[in-house]
Every structure is written in C-alpha cells, then in structure tokens.
Design a protein around this nucleic acid. Structure first.
Lengths: 228, 228
DNA sequence: CGCTACTTTGATCATACTCAAGCCGAGTGG
DNA sequence: CCACTCGGCTTGAGTATGATCAAAGTAGCG
C-alpha cells in the first residue's frame, strides 16, 4: 500500500493546487484501494512530458486529457483522449513514452507509479486494474491504427464522431477539443477536418450549431456506413 | 491446424514452474500441458482470426508473425510484426481483436489464455511477463501511430528499415515479408513502397541486391535523418 | 520451359495538404 | 454601446504526395 502524504516532498507532477483524495482519512475509514492525490489542471497544461520519469500514473476525474507524441519538427500525433474514469500514464520502463496535457480544465488523480513491481506487492485488485488498463489502451491503439493507416478523411471523421457519441451516449456532442486536436488525433489537417464536417452537414448527416464545438448527429446510420 | 506434442524444454524463457492457470481439471481431461504447445505454422496460415475466442496466447519461437485488422472492403492494416521471443495474443476480453498469421514458415508456442484471471492464480513471474508484454506492445503501437498519422512515405520506409535492422543488429536485412505486408504495415500501397525503396537506392542510402527481399543499409545516418 | 506470383516502372488522377484570406464569437477597452 | 483585437474556425485556390490503373520485368517452381 502506498501513502499519499508528503513523505516524498513536493510532487513535481502536482504543483499548484493539490487536493487530497483518499489519504489518511480515507485509509482510516478503511476505504480501499485507491489512494491518490487529486490535481486540477488548466487547459493545455502539461501533466507530464515525454521522457519524464514515470513516477505516477493517473486517473481522469473530470474533463479530458490527451496523450501525444511530437516529432522533432513539431508534427504531433495524439494517441488518445482520456475521459472521466480512464487511466493513463502506466509505463513499462522508467520514463513516459507520451506527454499528457489537459484538453480543457480537468481533474486527475495521481497514484504512485506501479507497473511490474506492484505485482510483487500482492495487491491483486490493483494489479488487475493495471493489466486491464494496459490491455484496454492497447485495444484502442490497435483500433486507431487502422483508422490512421487505411481510412479516408471522411471515414476518419465519421469514426471519430461515433466514438465521441458513444462515450456520452447522446447524439448531441459537445466536443471538448479544438479542431487542431481532432486533426492531430486523426492524422489530418485542421482544414480537412473543417471541410469534412461542413460536407457532412451539407449531406444532412450532422448539424453544426453556431457554437462550433457542438455537433448533432442527425443520421447515425449514414455515419456507420462511412465508418467502413 | 497442426499441433505438435508438448515440448517441455524447448522454450528457455517459459516459466520454470508449471502454471496453475490450466488447473487440475485441464490436466485431468488430458488437455494440453500448462507449459505450452509448440505449433508450426505455414506461410500465410492463420493462427487465429479477429473475433475468435481468445483461449490461447502465443510466443514466437521461429519466423515472423503478423497481427492485423481488416476492414469490410478488404483494406488491411498490419498492427505489428512479431519475431522470435515476442508474445502476442493477450486479450482483455474474451475475443481476439486482431487476426494473426505466419509471414513465412514459423513456429509459435501456445499457452493457455491468461489475462486477468492469471493474477488470481498467484503466478508472479507469469503475471509479470503478461503485464510487461502488454505494455511493450502498447509502446510499439504508440510509436507506430505517429508513423501512420504524421510521417511521409519516405520517412515511413526509413523508419521501417531501421526498425528491422535494429531487430537483427546487422545492416544487411533479409526481409521476411512481402512488399504487400510492408505496405499494409506502413499504411501505403505496394507501388509507393517499391518506388520509395528504388529512390533510396538511387540516393545511395540503401542497396537492393538481386533478391529483392534483401536490403543493405549503406547510410544509416541518412536513414536516421529521414526518420524525423 | 512456361507458368505464376511478386515486384518494378510508367502515366494519370484524386485526395488531402499548403498557403492565403475572410469569418465569427468572445473578450477588452474607449 | 461600439470598435477593436485575438484565437479559433471556415472557405478558397492551387499544388503535391501518394493512389490508381496499366504494363512490363523477374524470380521461383512445377
């Protein structure tokens, strides 16, 4: 078991306003197993950088977090968007392989790094969660690879919209991310994303209300057909 | 599907102690020993299909295995090539999310499915291996996503060649896979792969001996520069 | 030797990118 | 309240990269 308190001193990954979730109080109440440090992150604030030492892993409590890689010349690929309940930042080695940033205002809970060594500790529920998370993220990555490698722009956007809608279980989505984020997630440019959305609107498949971050799926069947 | 008899000592990296995952029941039914069943697979033979029930996971002993997804219209994305020592086929749910096929003649060792439940069995070395494998495959998938989403054809091919050379630690590669496999791995067409290789040869970066499956890296520095 | 599958090469085309301008809403200050 | 700016988004024109279609070259194998 880990202890959340400041035995480690100031946590470089949790500066400004660290709140405690779990902690001694929770432990006293016998709350299992999740002890971690809640941290609120501002829009575009970095949670950790690629190459940083991976001393924590995180669970999203509120908002959305993106994990991404950046090439030397600035080209960016967003690997995944993580929403409430999602876990990210579990690494095999000592360092993070992606960087993580808040898409908007977000709250994450930081847990002490646990990867292979956690298994030795014999905390089975935790180990189970770690494995399940890793495998879930792998599944999503595999799914995303066929999108990046083999789908057209229209198919990419359609898949994206359905993915987002599925997470909310509603057909009126309020996208938390910018066109730029969408583009870097889908391997497109912002112009192509914009044009594709406009075209889908013309075709009556979606509606784009004045606030451009809102999207209404008018014809899910058509989207699924585009989904390939 | 050919299954060879159990070959208990053949895999040096297999757990030294019998797994309990199969359980006494399996042994009583005279089923496969928990240690693993070696199986030789022919070129292009399917090891498992996407959607099949994931009752085994595999380690490559010889040859190369590809895991891939296929869209309804036949477009294919190869998620990874697995070489000797690599483990594939570990799933979170009940089914495989990719299909797996031998690239050439290959030998794999099948182990009874173990994912989350293995942790309950208390076999720590095995659990550790499972987790490490999942995380390694995730890292590779992340690395591959930025290639698929953001790299040019030349950069993709350069990255691929360096990747292959790294696996062999030699600068003269004998590619086990066809142009078609390379194309579907890199998200390109076979024509583009061929043209790119020809261009790299013209530039003196690589040499393409008569047997077109062979490639000599003449100028690794140049390749690394293209690697972005 | 001749088939077949794989690869290379060529010509043309289309998709998505680049560069550029304009639009719109939110926030700010006169 | 309006004018202004600023950032994000959309739209347009032209282009380039990689796809498609087609054909020819090459190796492996009966």
């Amino acid at each position: 078991m880990q202890t959340a308190p400041a035995t480690t001193g100031i946590d470089p990954a949790a500066p400004a306003t660290p709140m405690r979730a779990g902690g001694p109080a929770a432990a006293a109440r016998g709350e299992a197993p999740a002890m971690g440090i809640a941290r609120s992150v501002h829009k575009d604030e970095e949670i950790y950088g690629e190459g940083d030492e991976a001393r924590w892993y995180f669970k999203v409590t509120a908002g959305v977090v993106r994990t991404c890689k950046i090439l030397s010349d600035g080209r960016r690929q967003i690997e995944a968007f993580h929403v409430a309940g999602d876990i990210f930042g579990i690494e095999r080695g000592t360092d993070y392989h992606c960087s993580a940033e808040a898409v908007g205002e977000a709250v994450v809970v930081a847990y002490r790094r646990c990867s292979l060594e956690i298994l030795a500790a014999g905390d089975m529920p935790l180990a189970r969660q770690v494995v399940a998370t890793a495998l879930l993220n792998l599944e999503r990555a595999q799914q995303h690879m066929i999108l990046l490698g083999r789908k057209s722009a229209t198919e990419k956007v359609a898949t994206f919209l359905l993915e987002m809608a599925d997470r909310v279980h509603v057909d009126a989505i309020e996208l938390p991310m910018s066109r730029s984020d969408i583009a870097d997630y889908l391997g497109l440019t912002i112009e192509t994303v914009s044009r594709t959305l406009t075209q889908l609107e013309r075709d009556g498949v979606i509606a784009l209300p004045a606030a451009r971050r809102n999207i209404v799926l008018r014809n899910k069947a058509a989207l699924r057909r585009l989904n390939a």
